[in-house]
Design a protein around this nucleic acid. Structure first.
Lengths: 207, 207, 207, 207
DNA sequence: AGGTAACCGAGACGGTACGTCACGTCTTTAC
DNA sequence: GTAAAGACGTGACGTACCGTCTCGGTTACCT
């Protein structure tokens, strides 16, 4: 996963690159340092300067590869194991959605949740960065959910009148809202939400 | 509406207050300046220094009455006419909720929505400030919705198994999530969401 | 001793003064507070605000009676017992000068010396304040020395070619210079200086 | 002349220095701006902020290289041409001292004198800064005078009982005292003082 | 006895400057 | 050409005091 606000895609098979190549070691050091700093302080308080110092890296090296702090933090957080959202495996539409909710709630429980809330917060001030956030974090969840909702509408599990976009908002929204209003995310919430989503989609109450 | 992070309630009929009294003029100038700055730039970019300068006021005067920038901005934005959320008038539980959604979506459409999104974002970095946000913005909406949901559960409009807290998340969450993921808030969304909420509450589909 | 930078002389036998009279209690509290603060910190660090607070007095009360911090400090320090310089008693011109040197060195030994050095320093930035300093501290010493020098010139103890002003500089200068260059003022210095002054005045070396 | 409060001596032949080197241009701009400001206002009124602004330089750049305002001002003033005090050339001990007095009085006549008085004043509040003042301004004069006095004591020009330290105080003290008590420094004073110093040193009156 | 006027404490006010922090850029040497 | 180091101009931070200004309340003398 290449997390970045700008570069579309530097794909090229075997391009000649003069000069010293990018240091993979530095890249890792930067992301590691960022993650370590985030355990001690809020995204807000983490500075590029602190990351550079902790990583034993020049500030320029960070600015060369990431356009801003938010991008660094996003890459550091969202590429951690456990934060990926692989494509659907469930056969049953509703089970798929249920799984998505459970997984998301699990991912956002505890310290990680707070960090993600702060990241979402930090991205509000700039449209480009907000787009990058959507691309790097929400898009995958969005796609998975869209897949299941479409599937459910086709196989009669869900009401055909359901608007996919709004349905996704009804699923992701409550989780993110809980997170950002400082409330607990736990398994009970996950279960309750799942039930309400079922009703919202016009699903037969069979569970 | 007194927007502030801390003061609980200095209720006293005729308390003696030594010293020069607080300048109502300065207070207004500060909030006005803040509002005017917010039309030009993001919350992030607005500085206490800029507010003070634009208001023709010493920085100390701001710090004397507000603990941080977020509090100033919250008071400036949330006390504007049109941002209050008065207590329920609707007789019908569902109509009440529908009204709440419509009003909220209307309030968050356009520039105001962006500003609120940024405020919510700015509040993520500090628990105390986050609490102040909840108190100053979400609490009223929360209470209104809780009232209607309770009412609906009692009069049989809604499923009695509905968890009030989660139900509120399902109503407010999608709106806030839309806002903070950079999507449009419009009347169509409002209508669609209302329908899904009806289903989520286990309401009889009579509309 | 009325220490002040400005007032020339409001002497009037029984002038009518309407209104509440000046509070002697506050005046004393201010000077006491100043003295106490000066034992803990440099003149520089002492603020009118701190004096007012420590004295339990409004800032206005200080500004009503003293034009600036330096004046307060001068009055606080120079009116202390032991800082007065009474007029000459010695019969012998040289003995008089010797006594003046000894007294001055004694007064400026230890903490008091440091404070006086700081006062002199603080007065350099403003001509009016500097004049007040001269009037409040140096004038008396100056006059005493001038008296003895004149006397010595008349009775043949000192060379008649001696310029009184410069002679005074030769007497006071070394003491003040020692003080302000951070060196020790002690009895040995006092004795050495006295001897050199004798030579400088063209006195017969009889001691 | 390297004016500074602290650094002992970073002597190294060809030390490797990573990073962007110190900007000589900024250094000069800072000292120039300081000098220009000092022609308009007292040392007291000159602020680091004003220097930075006038020099077109960040405040940090000043704080990086000087520990406080006094150090900047000292370097700005004392490194000016005409303020250096080169080592003795005179063969005759008394002529040497006479020359030192004349030069010092010349240096401290007019605006420069006022500025130096203010610098000495500003340095009284802090021992470290006072030491720096002594090192940067007084030490050279001190050494020159000590050389001549020693010489004079050896060749019989001066009384052998003269204490070198006190003798220096008797020479420098009157000048500095005149300066700081707001009196004139002129050629007549210089001549008068020289004569008295001669007597003080126990020299034969041959002039 | 009441009026009037200057005093007093408290503390808010518009300011200026402080010294620090982080920003994003630039300039050097080394790899 | 990329890297670490670190200096640079910029701008905001939150704090400390400045000297002034309102407040309510307090003496005192003079009618």
């Amino acid at each position: 996963m290449q997390v970045s606000a700008t570069q579309p895609m530097p794909e090229k098979e075997h391009e000649f690159k003069a000069g010293r190549p990018r240091s993979e070691e530095s890249r890792r050091a930067i992301l590691d340092a960022t993650r370590r700093l985030l355990t001690h302080m809020s995204v807000n308080k983490v500075s590029i300067e602190a990351i550079a110092k902790k990583a034993g890296v020049g500030k320029t090296t960070i600015y060369r590869w990431w356009p801003n702090k938010q991008s660094v933090v996003m890459e550091a957080v969202f590429t951690q194991p456990g934060f990926q959202n692989f494509m659907p495996q469930a056969d049953n539409a509703f089970e798929g959605i249920k799984g998505q909710i459970e997984k998301l709630v699990r991912q956002l429980t505890g310290k990680n949740g707070r960090i993600v809330a702060e990241i979402i917060g930090e991205c509000q001030g700039d449209v480009e960065i907000l787009k990058a956030l959507v691309k790097n974090f929400f898009q995958d969840r969005y796609n998975s959910l869209a897949y299941y909702i479409q599937k459910g509408k086709q196989d009669g599990t869900f009401d055909t009148g359901v608007d996919v976009e709004v349905a996704i908002d009804v699923i992701l929204g409550p989780v993110i809202f809980r997170l950002m209003s400082g409330q607990n995310l736990d398994e009970a919430f996950s279960r309750n939400l799942t039930n309400m989503v079922r009703g919202a989609m016009g699903a037969k109450h069979t569970a």
